[in-house]
Each structure stands twice: as structure tokens, then as C-alpha cells.
């Protein structure tokens, strides 16, 4: 086991280096000059341009810039935004909880709904119930979520007026952000109605972000269940006269869970990709929106640092999933 963990960690180092090279070089390749944008429509004089380039260290040889960047990374310095002049890491740490909260709620939602739906469809295989569950799942899986988000806003916020349009909590409530998770902070604050407000703000974005993982989990659960239900031991259990609930709930589901858990782990990347769109639509102050905005603002430093940080998160999550998987299923360690 130790060797397995060590091996996985060793692999991370070249990947990390590669990621840093990509993030760094991408940004140098971006067309458009962030310094130019500082003054908007007003044209900047060439002298002043040179001066600012120098001040930002953008006029040094590329390898020196990279080396500086790398040493910065090792000391936790991800650079400073060109637009806001704030350290990238500060912004990331402030915004990441919002994304995490949204992603967490989405995955819980997807699991809580997806697994039972998949099990149900598998058990009732071939019936209209199975077909409709799988039909809906396939629609969800095919959904352009940016459009889906707009439709939900038009209907639930615009037409029915049930849910708030965007943001994380009503402006009525204000309390210190202890954890950065609105649901938890609102409870800690002890303000009446704050938690409820936070929940209503979360519903639509969660639904949108959960749509694809939900469909994937339901489909995956169904096929894993079908496979397991066909295996000998389940048949035996059935033949022994165990109640269907025990057969499905205990024997089959437990074994069907291994591929499903992998699937869930793999959804992290999907969630972060989805967060880019979801957050943009709902003005959710998370890292997805932050990245999109920064790309458009040509904020070199933020895109670069953000790519690094996000890739880092994904790498860590993948590692954990890998390790968990290796722990559950010792065969794949080799």
C-alpha cells in the first residue's frame, strides 16, 4: 500500500511541472496586451507602456520569468492580478468555498437522486418506468446546461417568482464568513431565516450543476446493478428466498457501488467544468466565473495562477479517488 501511495505521488511531480509549464506558456501566448487594457480607450504612450512592462517584470527573458514563477509557486506565491492588484491566492481562497459549496450540494443531490433512480430502473428493467427514468437521464445527459440554467431562471425566478435570481444569500443577512460555506455560516450566525435564504439561493444553481452528474450516475448505477443482478451469488441469494430488499439493497448494491464510486470521483472535473457555465449564469461568486472573467479581462496572472490552483485541486482529488479505489479494490494496485 505504501509503495502504491508513493508511486502515485511520484507521478504527481512531473504532472505538476507540466501543468505549470502549460499554465505559464499559455499565458505568454495569449494575444492582447494586458498593460494596454489598463488605460482602456485612451492610448498609452510607448514610453509608459515600456515602463509598466518593466515594472511588472514582463520584459525579462521568458525562462527567468518562468523560474521566478516556479519558485514563487513553491513558496505559495501565485502572483498578483494585473487588474485588481490583489494576490491570486487570496482571491482563490475567498472564492473557492463558494464553488465547493455549490459542487458539494450538486454531487449530493446527484447521488441521492441518481443512485435510487438507477437501482429502481435496474430492478424494474424493461418496464415503462425503466424506460422513462433512462429517457429522462439521457435528456439530462444531453442537456446544454447553460441553456437549461436560462430556462430555469425564466420559469422559476421570472414567471413563478419562487427562487431568487442570483447570488448566495439575501442582502438582508450579513454575518462574518467563518467557513466560507454559506449554509454553515448562516447557521453559525444564528440569524433567523438566514439558512433558509441560503438554501433558496442554492436550489437553481445546484439543479443545473447536478444535471449531468445525476444523469451519469443514474445510468452508471443502472448498468452496474444489471451486471450484478445477473451474477450467480445474487441468483443464489434470491433462490435462498431472501427478501428482494435484502438482495437488492445489501448484496447487489454493495457490489455495484465500486464502479459508481469511481464515476462519482470522475465527476469532479465535470463539476468544475460545469461550474464555469453555471456560475456565469447565476452570478455565483466562485472560481469558475472568476476564471471566465479573467480570461476576458486578459488578466494574465489570474488565469495562470487559477489554472495552476484548479489543476492542483483536480490532481489531488484524482489522487484521493485513486487511493480510495486501491484501498477498496486491492487488485488494481499493481
Amino acid at each position: 500500500m505504501f509503495r502504491f501511495i508513493f508511486g502515485r505521488l511520484a507521478v504527481l511531480i512531473p504532472t505538476f511541472l507540466g501543468v505549470s509549464i502549460i499554465a505559464f506558456s499559455f499565458i505568454r501566448l495569449l494575444p492582447g496586451d494586458p498593460v494596454m487594457l489598463m488605460s482602456g480607450e485612451r492610448v498609452m504612450s510607448p514610453e509608459r507602456h515600456t515602463q509598466i512592462m518593466h515594472q511588472l517584470g514582463l520584459d525579462r527573458p521568458i525562462y527567468i520569468q518562468y523560474f521566478d514563477y516556479l519558485t514563487g509557486l513553491l513558496t505559495g506565491d501565485f502572483g498578483s492580478s494585473i487588474v485588481t492588484k490583489r494576490p491570486v491566492l487570496d482571491d482563490f481562497l475567498q472564492l473557492f468555498p463558494a464553488t465547493l459549496e455549490l459542487a458539494f450540494c450538486a454531487i449530493i443531490f446527484a447521488v441521492l437522486l441518481g443512485i435510487p433512480a438507477g437501482v429502481f430502473a435496474a430492478v424494474k428493467r424493461g418496464t415503462w418506468l425503466d424506460q422513462s427514468i433512462m429517457g429522462v437521464a439521457l435528456i439530462g445527459y444531453s442537456m446544454p446546461i447553460f441553456w437549461w440554467g436560462l430556462l430555469l431562471i425564466i420559469f422559476f425566478s421570472g414567471y413563478l417568482g419562487w427562487t431568487p435570481v442570483s447570488g448566495r444569500i439575501s442582502f438582508m443577512y450579513f454575518f462574518p464568513q467563518v467557513t466560507g460555506f454559506m449554509l454553515i455560516d448562516s447557521l453559525i450566525s444564528g440569524q433567523a431565516g438566514a439558512f433558509k435564504s441560503a438554501v433558496t439561493y442554492l436550489i437553481l444553481p445546484t439543479t443545473v450543476l447536478a444535471t449531468i452528474p445525476l444523469a451519469v450516475i443514474a445510468r452508471q448505477t443502472r448498468s452496474a446493478m444489471l451486471e450484478v443482478l445477473g451474477e450467480d451469488y445474487v441468483r443464489t441469494a434470491r433462490a435462498k428466498g431472501l427478501s428482494p430488499f435484502r438482495v437488492i439493497g445489501v448484496h447487489a448494491l454493495r457490489n455495484a457501488m465500486i464502479p459508481v464510486i469511481t464515476t462519482i470521483g470522475l465527476q469532479v472535473g465535470v463539476l468544475l467544468a460545469g461550474a464555469i457555465l453555471t456560475e456565469s449564469i447565476f452570478s455565483w461568486p466562485g472560481i469558475g466565473k472568476w476564471m471566465v472573467d479573467s480570461v476576458f479581462k486578459r488578466d494574465y496572472a489570474v488565469v495562470q495562477g487559477g489554472l495552476m490552483l484548479i489543476a492542483g485541486v483536480i490532481m489531488i482529488v484524482n489522487l484521493v479517488v485513486d487511493l480510495l479505489y486501491g484501498w477498496i479494490n486491492p487488485r488494481i494496485r499493481h
Partner: peptide, 21 residues
């Protein structure tokens, strides 16, 4: 005084109509 930062203009309009700002 609260500035509710809402980058999407359509969403801002929705919020205004909903009385959120």
C-alpha cells in the same frame, strides 16, 4: 448601502423586478 454585484444585465433586471435590489 449594499452593492449587490451582478454581472449579467438580464439577471440584474430580474432582481430589480423581484425586489431584490
Amino acid at each position: 448601502l449594499v452593492f449587490a454585484i451582478t454581472t449579467d444585465a438580464a439577471v440584474r433586471a430580474q432582481k430589480l423586478k423581484a425586489g431584490e435590489c
